[in-house]
């Protein structure tokens, strides 16, 4: 198993698409293993930019990405897109249809589109999305776009993963998403009012500006760009805005890398603890301890110490 994965990794790093694709599946099927793989990728990571594109359903995110790709190609040699859609909570299945709209570069070797179901993870991303980003990064995909559904607070998660977060809205947004305005306006670096040929664009811009002004502690005031993705209107301008933002972050590349590394370790350690805990709670020792009769607070404290000791022993033994 292990050998298989390292073979696949070597092939993927040598630009074998099928191996990369297989690894992505392996990562999706096991987010702990995904983080492990990521760990081994750390030396080769940190060369790519990650642009998050989020917004409510039907805002035109995929179409916007489709329009951006050919323009981004002038600055970035190749582009990977990870399109995450929610999985059904009943069946765990999912309909993943974003690829349909990303046909502008269909024949090109320079685009890699990967669809992902969120597989029960809340927050707009799948558990393994971040690992997938690291893999693309290591395999020399210099621009990675993550598309996720966002209707409120949840897209904060993408803001943690992406270097730049673009929030896509439509005219009339203020009326529809009243309750979630706060969440959506906290996460973005750039705001796009797509389908700007529809009525209400001016009102939406003003509402958006007002909402953004309410948020304190921003190093940079987010820009608002108007586009019509299906007629390519405003797309070049949008790309300039994104590229400028990326440029200004370029100097912080070292910082970004450190942050990602930090996040990875954090993630991995919490996975480990989660797993160790899962096994520990089933052990007779734990069952024994937690069911003891407790007569004074000191006893409780002692028992807890015993549990923590058991966990740390288990973790040390890995």
């Amino acid at each position: 198993m292990n050998q298989d994965i390292s073979d696949l990794l070597q092939r993927a790093l040598k630009d074998d698409r099928a191996a990369l694709a297989r690894l992505l599946s392996i990562m999706e099927n096991n987010s702990v293993l995904a983080a492990e793989i990521e760990l081994s990728l750390l030396p080769s990571m940190g060369k790519s930019f990650v642009v998050g594109i989020t917004g409510p359903p039907g805002a035109g995110k995929s179409s916007l990405i489709n329009a951006l790709i050919p323009i981004a190609a002038k600055d970035f040699d190749r582009t990977a897109v990870i399109a995450v859609d929610p999985s059904s909570t009943f069946s765990q299945g999912a309909l993943l249809g974003d690829r349909v709209r990303m046909n502008s570069y269909n024949h090109s070797e320079k685009l890699f589109v990967r669809s992902m179901g969120s597989r029960g993870n809340l927050g707009g991303l799948a558990r393994s999305t971040v690992s997938a980003v690291s893999l693309f990064d290591s395999c020399n995909w210099p621009l990675i776009i993550i598309e996720t559904l966002g209707i409120g607070q949840i897209e904060l998660e993408i803001a943690e993963v992406a270097d730049i977060t673009v929030v896509v809205l439509n005219p009339g947004w203020g009326d529809t998403f009243q309750a979630n305005k706060a969440g959506i306006t906290e996460s973005g670096d750039i705001y796009v009012i797509n389908k700007s040929d529809r009525p209400g664009v001016h009102k939406t811009r003003i509402e958006l500006e007002e909402s953004l002004a309410l948020i304190p502690h921003r190093s940079r005031v987010p820009q608002i760009v108007e586009t019509i993705a299906n007629t390519d209107t405003g797309i070049v301008g949008l790309w300039h805005t994104i590229a400028e933002s990326l440029d200004s972050k370029n100097t912080d590349l070292k910082q970004i890398r450190e942050l990602r590394q930090q996040q990875l370790f954090h993630r991995l350690v919490s996975f480990k603890i989660e797993q160790a805990l899962g096994v520990a709670t089933k052990s007779s020792l734990w069952k024994n301890i937690v069911s003891q009769n407790i007569e004074n607070p000191e006893d409780a404290r002692d028992l807890l110490d015993n549990l923590l000791l058991d966990i740390s022993t288990r973790l040390r033994n890995y």
């Binding site: 765990q92 309909l95 993943l96 349909v100 046909n103």
Partner: peptide, 20 residues
């Protein structure tokens, strides 16, 4: 939809050429 409800992840690409 039936495949999704049976637990599959269904990637729909619509009209596509052999290459696609």
């Amino acid at each position: 939809r039936a495949l999704r409800d049976a637990g599959y992840e269904v990637i729909m690409i619509g009209m596509a050429t052999g290459e696609e």
